[in-house]
Simulated scan of single mutants.
Amino acid sequence: MENYKIKKTSSKVIYHVFTFFFAIVMIYPLLWMVMSSFKETAEIFKTAEKLLPASFDIRNYVVGWQGFAGNKFSIFFKNSFVIAGLSTIGAVLSSAVVAFGFARCEFKLKGFWFACMLIAMMLPFQVIMIPQYILFNKLGWVGTYLPIIVPQFFGQGFFIFLIMQFIKGIPVDLDEAAAIDGCSIYGIFIQIVLPLVKPALVTSAIFSFMWRWDDFLSALIYISDPLKYPVSYALKMFADPTAGSDWGAMFAMATLSLLPIFLIFLTMQKYLVEGIASTGIKG
């Protein structure tokens, strides 16, 4: 019995030591970027092997916040919040409606449309990138946020599947009881289903906000006006291959750009874990 306890304790120690060192390896690039944001640009690559700066200097944050071409970085943060916020609202609400339809409603070719949704979800963005650009260009949307935001209001396959799995875990008896009390299908969705799928909705919102906040390719394709750049695209402007790049300012603004995502994960972690665990989606 004593040998068993020793082996069990040893295995736990080995597991935690391995996990700790693996976590350090994974997080080191992030720590290097944060620490480099306090270094002078000339010092960053000369002392790349050193994590801590010789002296902590916040000038990179001051310079980076001034932006470029007279546009302060507050403008780019505002643009990102507009894009990510509206896209998240549209993606979550539309996906919840479609998920409810697949989970609770019966209609013709239901299996066929569900299969189409799954196929569309598996398509890489590069496959539909050119057809989408041609369509949005003919609509006159290129140069605006519409090509980035509007498609989110038509449901997203991953969120539909996530919310649908959660709805299936809700007893149908609740729907039937509400229908007996005179509740319509819309009332069942709004008053019964939506409050019960809150963890799945929050999980979808977190992922949607994160993906839209970090979306560089869409901004690169559709946005040409510097005043409309989101943070993800504005960061690229600090790197100039034809002249000197202000890496310190870039790292400083990149560090600030992580704060919204970090705060969302920190405050919504409970719902994120509950939503993923309840739907059975595992890494």
Rank of each mutant, 00 (worst) to 15 (best):
residue 270 K to M: 10
residue 245 S to R: 00
residue 244 G to I: 09
residue 248 G to V: 11
residue 264 I to K: 06
residue 230 P to W: 08
residue 229 Y to M: 09
residue 233 Y to K: 10
residue 254 A to C: 07
residue 238 F to R: 04
residue 262 F to S: 05
residue 231 V to I: 11
residue 250 M to Y: 09
residue 246 D to N: 15
residue 269 Q to H: 13
residue 260 P to G: 06
residue 269 Q to A: 04
residue 249 A to G: 13
residue 228 K to C: 05
residue 242 T to F: 04
residue 230 P to V: 04
residue 237 M to C: 08
residue 266 L to T: 15
residue 263 L to I: 15
residue 247 W to Y: 15
residue 271 Y to R: 05
residue 262 F to D: 05
residue 257 S to N: 11
residue 265 F to T: 09
residue 231 V to N: 03
residue 255 T to Q: 08
residue 237 M to W: 03
residue 246 D to L: 12
residue 244 G to H: 05
residue 263 L to F: 14
residue 234 A to D: 02
residue 249 A to V: 07
residue 269 Q to S: 13
residue 237 M to P: 01
residue 265 F to V: 08
residue 234 A to E: 05
residue 250 M to C: 10
residue 229 Y to R: 07
residue 240 D to F: 00
residue 235 L to V: 10
residue 254 A to R: 06
residue 235 L to H: 03
residue 267 T to H: 02
residue 254 A to S: 15
residue 246 D to Q: 14
residue 270 K to Q: 13
residue 247 W to V: 06
residue 268 M to V: 10
residue 232 S to L: 06
residue 269 Q to R: 13
residue 253 M to N: 01
residue 232 S to A: 15
residue 268 M to S: 15
residue 256 L to W: 03
residue 244 G to L: 12
residue 250 M to E: 12
residue 254 A to F: 03
residue 269 Q to K: 13
residue 231 V to W: 01
residue 239 A to Q: 14
residue 246 D to P: 01
residue 267 T to M: 12
residue 256 L to P: 06
residue 269 Q to Y: 07
residue 241 P to R: 01
residue 262 F to H: 01
residue 233 Y to V: 11
residue 230 P to I: 02
residue 231 V to M: 07
residue 238 F to K: 07
residue 235 L to Y: 07
residue 257 S to M: 03
residue 229 Y to P: 03
residue 231 V to F: 01
residue 256 L to S: 03
residue 241 P to Y: 02
residue 242 T to S: 12
residue 261 I to M: 14
residue 235 L to G: 08
residue 256 L to M: 14
residue 237 M to N: 09
residue 268 M to I: 03
residue 247 W to C: 03
residue 243 A to F: 07
residue 265 F to H: 12
residue 259 L to T: 12
residue 248 G to A: 04
residue 245 S to D: 06
residue 258 L to H: 02
residue 254 A to G: 15
residue 263 L to E: 00
residue 232 S to D: 09
residue 258 L to D: 02
residue 269 Q to M: 08
residue 264 I to L: 14
residue 238 F to E: 10
residue 228 K to A: 05
residue 235 L to S: 09
residue 232 S to T: 10
residue 248 G to Q: 09
residue 261 I to A: 11
residue 262 F to Q: 00
residue 247 W to H: 10
